[in-house]
């Protein structure tokens, strides 16, 4: 099955059911990630990136649920798997790390034990073997003196070290796919770069595919080969990351690119955010008719307010969802 893509998402829909009515929090989500590939999902906060990730690993909880579509992992449809089968995939073949390195580790358990638990849980190792493997795993994420560090509790480690531990835990079982949801948002900039570099190198060495989720287009485009831009529960553009920078096609993507500091002017970042996109992402229950971006779009016309645009393939590869795309 090595020829088929690792992950294929087709027309995924996520429903929000508040007891009164059922609305689509995300719909028409389609993308594929090949083995060992790095794929990015970008969009402002509230666009539906995290719920998409949760849907992939079968962890949507009421009021959210999968409303339709297919999620195929390694050739097998996984959206209807039993809870037990999904649990066997999670942490083992699909791993995920997320934003808070401060709270994602159990405060009363030594970090080595938390790594070792993965080998016991998914690989059926004895605690003895697992503890040994935990030291190796900690060494692989370049934590100095790993044989001593395994005994440390999370509060004894810095934020960056904790995120390294999280990466060690996530990669412990040699997953095929690592989902990283805003993995460095809570860290300061220098540490961010180190962690991203580490994650990218480790995954490249092991052939682990990455689904990198962030609000930061610059970060995602830097790490990933291809990028999908999400807005208000829909993917509005998907391109190679070089293309998306050079010639963004969707007005929303253009907005994201314009709001990035240009190369060499990073110092200005703190003082003046360049060209923010005016307005905010609408709440799920207030999605506008037609194109969901129309209230914030400078190019919007009557058709944008009346009909939702369909996806359109681009010559250079990828697709865009806009009536008046560049």
């Amino acid at each position: 099955m090595t020829g088929s893509p690792l992950l294929e998402v087709e027309d995924l829909r996520i429903d929000l059911d508040d007891g009164l009515r059922r609305v689509a929090a995300a719909e028409g989500i389609s993308f594929r990630i090949n083995r060992g590939e790095t794929f990015g999902l970008v969009g402002e906060s509230g666009c539906g990136k995290s719920i998409t990730a949760l849907a992939l690993i079968g962890l949507l909880r009421p009021p959210l649920s999968i409303g339709g579509g297919v999620i195929r992992f390694d050739g097998q449809e996984i959206q209807h798997l039993s809870a037990a089968r999904q649990r066997q995939l999670r942490g083992n073949r699909i791993a995920m790390i997320f934003q808070e390195p401060m709270t994602a580790l159990n405060p009363v358990s030594p970090v080595g034990r938390q790594i070792a638990e993965m080998f016991v849980l998914h690989k059926g190792k004895s605690w003895r073997e697992a503890n040994q493997l935990a030291v190796e795993a900690l060494a692989s994420v370049r934590v100095p003196a790993p044989e001593r560090r395994v005994k440390d509790y999370p509060h004894q480690l810095s934020g960056g070290m904790r995120q390294r531990v999280m990466i060690a835990i996530a990669l412990a079982c040699g997953p095929d796919l690592l989902i990283a949801d805003e993995p460095t948002t809570a860290l300061d900039v220098t540490v961010q770069a180190e962690i991203i570099e580490l994650m990218r190198n480790l995954c490249a060495e092991r052939g682990t595919a990455i689904l990198m989720i962030s609000h930061d287009l610059g970060l995602v485009a830097n790490v990933c080969r291809r990028v999908a831009v999400m807005y208000a529960g829909r993917i509005v553009e998907e391109r190679g990351s070089a293309d998306i920078f050079r010639a963004p096609s969707h007005p929303y993507t253009q907005g994201l690119v314009d709001s990035l500091p240009r190369l060499g002017s990073r110092a200005a970042l703190g003082r003046s955010r360049l060209k923010e996109i005016a307005g905010v992402v609408p709440a799920i229950t207030r999605f506008p008719d037609g194109c969901r971006f129309n209230p914030r779009c400078a190019q919007a016309t009557d058709i944008c307010r009346a009909t939702a645009p369909q996806t359109e393939g681009l010559e250079a590869g990828g697709f865009v969802r806009c009536h008046h795309h560049a």
């Binding site: 962890l59 066997q88 999670r90 997320f98 808070e100 994602a104 580790l105 159990n106 835990i169």
Partner: peptide, 10 residues
């Protein structure tokens, strides 16, 4: 967070 992380880890 660590309880949710554990769920995510299977």
């Amino acid at each position: 967070g660590y309880v949710q992380a554990a769920t995510v880890l299977g």
